[in-house]
Amino acid sequence: MSAVLTPAVRRPLLRRLRPLGNGPLFTVAVLVLGVLVLVAALAPLIAPYDPEALDLRSSLVGSSADHLLGTDQSGRDVLSRLLYGARTGLLGPLLVVGLSTAGGLLLGTVAGWRGGWADAVLSRLMDLVFSVPGLLVAIMFVAVAGPGLTAPVIAMAVAYTPYVGRLVHGLARQEKARPYLESYRVQGWSGWTICVRHLLPNIAPTVLAQSAINFGYALMDLAALSFLGFGVQPPAADWGAMINDGESALQQGATMPALAPSVCIVLAVVAFGIVGEGIADRLARRER
């Protein structure tokens, strides 16, 4: 009896261990992201020091038991700053991806579903935004609103909207022609109801895959902005700003203050990329 039951009991467990069954790389990427989120959530509990506490006497100390990753020029603990940096590092892209996904879904769905002049106007609008470099828009926003997290986030959200919008536009057009959605029209549902209740859920996984990839890019762009001094301002802990800070330390032979946040950014961007591609792959396989 138990021999018969075992496979049925074991399968879901196995599945939970390999979240989407995309192989080891995918699993590692998911773990990396999991750790990142945990660190961001628990930073105040696990950080050994106050990330903004200056201690000029212990400036640029190498790795030691006291400071695992050493200190920066102002004597701040690099590890603590990294852990806290995960917070803005994730919050910024989360807002960017959330806003741009919402905007892209709205514009793409309206354009793809309505077609005609609405499509023409919205598609040209998206092309227009698309053709302006996002970082440039962000710098303009910062020039007007001042540095910080808000202006770069809004600018990047605007810049990323066409990426989502174009994807959704194509998906909406393609799905609209499928008989299962046409059947809802024949039944007499309003276009609005069909889009919200049936179109969006059916295209959501594909959009989610794109959003995961965008998350990595947004993280990188926001880090670039704060590296340039337009984003989160020192002494707040932010990976991009830390690299900027660490530049002068590099000249004095201390690599850790710049290298550690760089590694974090690369890890996060690559992990989001792998997860996004993994979801997309899985969808492609399911389509077949």
């Binding site: 008989p179 299962y180 007499g188």
Partner: peptide
Amino acid sequence: RLERARGIQLVFQDPYVSLDPR
């Protein structure tokens, strides 16, 4: 819209694509 839908209904050719998979 509803009045019109109650007038004429359609059964599509291919039942493999005419039902919502979800």
